[in-house]
Structures are given as C-alpha cells and as structure tokens.
Design a protein around this nucleic acid. Structure first.
Lengths: 251, 251
DNA sequence: CGTCAAGTTGAAACAGGTCAAATACCGTGG
DNA sequence: CCACGGTATTTGACCTGTTTCAACTTGACG
C-alpha cells in the first residue's frame, strides 16, 4: 500500500489537525472506494442535477463554474488534487453550478453514509473536513473581493499565489514550482477579465521577474514580490491551527 | 408571547422544512437568549477576532465585508433579519472578514453548545440551519458571478432582486415593497462599482419603470422586468424543497 | 507535416472610473 | 418652525483600464 501521507487530502488535512495512523488509513481507504474518471472539459456534475455523492479529487484539476444564458462563463473555484466538494450537499435538491474537469480527472465518490460513519469512527477527520469546508467558503469570499476590488494585475497575481500555496499545502509543489494546467482563458474566467488582457498582465508579471509559466508549469521566482503585487494576505486560508485543541492523540 | 411565525428566522426556515410547534417555540426561545445591540457602522465582530458565537440577526441589517490595506472595501454579503451567520465558525481561529452593522442591529448570540442540543432535540431545525448555510454559500457564488461577468446594470438589478426576494422570504415585504436601508455606496461596494456609476445605473432602472427607491423603501414596479434586466435565475436560492423528505411530522 | 487549440500583438472603442462641485435630505437644537 | 451641519445623492466633464476585433505566431500531438 502507498504511504498514506502521499495522498494529497491527507497532506492538506494534516495541516489543520493531527491525524492518527488509523485516520490516515481511513483516508487511504476512502480514496480507493468508487473511483471515477472524467475527461477534460466534461462535467463531473452539471447545473440542475441532483447531487448524489461528495467528490474527492485524486488526480487532475476541476473547477466549479456557472454559465450565463448568453455564454458568459464564471469560474467559481478551482479544485486541486486532495480537494473535497460540498460536505453537506445532499441537503440540496439541485446543483446551482456545475463541476467541470479542467484536465482529465480521477476522483472518488463518497455517499451520504460515509460521513455518518466518519463522524463516529474518525471524529478528527470529520472535524478536518468541516475545517476544509469553511476554508472553501473563505476562498470564495476572497475571490469575490479579488474580482470586485482588485486591478487586473492584482487579480491574476492573487490567483497564481493562491493556487501555488494550495498546491504546496497538498504536497504537490517542488520548491517554487508547481503544475499549472490552466489556459489563459481559464484564468480570465476566474478573474472576471478577458483572455487578451490576462495575456498582457502575465507578460507584465514575467517582466517584473515574479513568475515564469511555460508548458503547464508555474515557477514562482519571487513569492514575496508576487504577494505584494497581489495584496495577498494568507489569513483567509486559515493555515494557523490550534495546537491545543487539535494535536494528535492516539488512543 | 409573540406569534413564533412572525420571527423572520422561522419564516425563512419554514420555506425549507416544515417546523413543528415545538420547533417554532425553540426558535422563539433562542431569539430571546443573549440579545445584543450594535449601532450602525460598528462591527459585530472584526477581522482577526476569534469568533465565540453564532449570530442570529433579529432586527436591522448587517454585512460581511473586507477592507484592503489602502481602504478599498468589498461587501461580501448582506445579512437581513432572520439570517444566521456561520453555523460552524467555532472551528476557525480568526475571522477573515468583519461583520458590520449597516443600520442599528439587534441580534442573539448562540454559543457552541446550543447546536449540540439542537441536533438532539430539534433535528429538523438543525437540518434547516444546514440548508441555510448551504444557501449562503450559493449566494456567495452568485455574487462572484455577478461581479465577474455581469454589466453594471445587470449587477445592480440582480442585487436588488435578490434582496427583495430574501426580504419577502423572511416575511418582511408588503406586496412589492420592502425596506432598503443601503446607501448607494453600499450597493457600489457590493457590486464592484463606484457610487457615481451606481447612481446613474439606478436612474436607468427607474427610467425603465422597473423600480422606485426613496426614503429607504424599495418598490419593485416590475419584478419580471427587473429579473430579466438582471439575468436573474432564482435557482441559487434553493427555494424548492423536497416535500417527501422534509414535511412536518409531529411525534 | 498538418491541424487545432492556445498564446501574442496592435489598433480602436467603450464601459465605467475619477474628480469636483451642486443639490437634496434628515435629524437636531435653538 | 427654521436654521444648521453632516451625510447622501446627483450632475457634468474628462480620463483610463479593459474590452473588442482581427490577424498572426507558437506549440502540442497524431
């Protein structure tokens, strides 16, 4: 069996709570149950559909998105390996947006009962999932702010900064490099800009020596510089965890 | 004692689940416990503070907001009477935004244990609160879309449409009129526009006969027209409830 | 080596921003 | 009841960041 800490979900949740060996095994087990694949550009679930499972992204990138009747597209979130969608989604009748594969995506589907069992047998995982859900909401708020009140350069820099830090948190960055499979159109639809303007903005960020981005690989050349170009403040990612309440305790 | 259905929270949650007389009484009871008041423009809780209670808005309007270092302001959500903030917020160490009173606000503070008790004694309320939390997330996503991909006119029309429908859901509209205590600056900071441009946009909406807005009162003169000017689709409010699973059952 | 998607460039247009002054509104105290 | 002061709204003139459109280049892949 693979090392459970290599599972991005485990890496990420561990940043919040200490997880026991048994917790880590449980995450590994969940990552092997009901595994599905979706090709790039296809929906994992479409707007209007009735959600029947929580999705745990194992490999590849997905996004939440809305389409307006005339085709305008807004990306609401990027889902990276290790991300979990919509802990409590069973309560809703219909999706108000779709979840779409950016690259080919492999994911596990978790049914409603999984969480009832988790709450009993692995309360620490459940608490970490709740934390993760709250962080997802916080990210959504930060995106609202990003689009509403930042300039084009700040928006793009902010997005890249966030994605890099999240990839690193999931154990998916090597040094200051991470995979970046988005197109400039994807960046545009996430930041409320046009692809043309994103292109010019990226050129400026490159010219300032802040980033390089070629062949689906993002190199952060100056993280502090990028953060300050973005007015980036990582508080919304809630990476500070409460050591007292949440450290590992093996029973 | 007042009629429990007059409590806006009860009105709103009833739109989702059927609540028993005992549930309604419990909501009335919660609305009387630990009641606080905050004057307009003051924070109910500030960014960086450690959240110690869930807030239930009883009277007046509040907002969630973020301030960038240079003073730019983004309103993330408006909280109307009956709204509940952040069901699971105890898990987080620090607020990533502040909750600020728009008008004078009266609210009840609910501690962590309240929800443990509710889950046992009033599971139907708990389920409704979970639904409400999911709808709040959905609203946040819609705002991201609004700011990212709609024109100024669409944005403003969309915001007014949403606020009116939410007020009506909470039992706080008379016909096609509701209270609207926001300034044009508030609307601007919620839609990613400037106050000057909001002003011109509102004049256009008035000229088209869609709304009137004077003395803190909004009159919707043509709801369908306003919706279509906004490309408004109410699906994100998740007003459709599942009769089978969620109708009242008295035991 | 051809094809299709993604990225880049330039020129022109415009939605919305900025600045600054004028007006209306509203509660308060004389 | 009116004058006052502060806040919110409205107006006009001008400006600019971003969009639009259309063409061209590069890159990935069978």
């Amino acid at each position: 069996m693979e090392d459970p800490m290599l599972i991005p979900t485990a890496a990420k949740l561990s940043a919040f709570v200490g997880l026991s060996a048994s917790d880590l095994n449980e995450l590994a087990r969940l990552s092997r149950s009901d595994v599905q694949t979706t090709a790039a550009k296809m929906d994992l679930i479409s707007e209007g559909e009735n959600p029947r499972s929580v999705k745990l992204i194992l490999r590849g990138w997905a996004c939440r998105q809305k389409l307006l009747p005339d085709g305008r597209r807004q990306v609401l979130a990027y889902l990276l390996p290790g991300d979990i969608c919509d802990l409590h989604v069973f309560i809703l009748r219909a999706m108000d947006h779709s979840i779409t594969a950016v690259t080919d995506v492999t994911y596990a589907r978790l049914g409603e009962t999984v969480f009832e069992e988790l709450a009993d047998a692995h309360p620490r995982i459940m608490q970490a999932l709740l934390w993760d859900a709250l962080v997802s909401s916080a990210i959504q708020r930060e995106w609202t702010t990003n689009i509403g009140r930042r300039t084009a350069t700040e928006r793009v820099a902010h997005l890249l900064c966030e994605l890099f830090l999240r990839m690193r948190l999931a154990g998916l960055a090597r040094g200051n490099v991470c995979e970046m499979p988005l197109t400039q159109i994807d960046v545009a639809d996430a930041t409320g800009l046009t692809a043309v303007h994103v292109n010019r903005t990226l050129q400026a960020l490159r010219a300032e020596g802040l980033i390089e981005w070629r062949r689906r690989e993002l190199h952060i050349r100056d993280l502090d510089g990028l953060k300050s170009a973005a007015t980036f403040d990582s508080n919304y990612l809630h990476l500070d965890h409460d050591e007292d309440r949440l450290s590992v305790r093996e029973f």
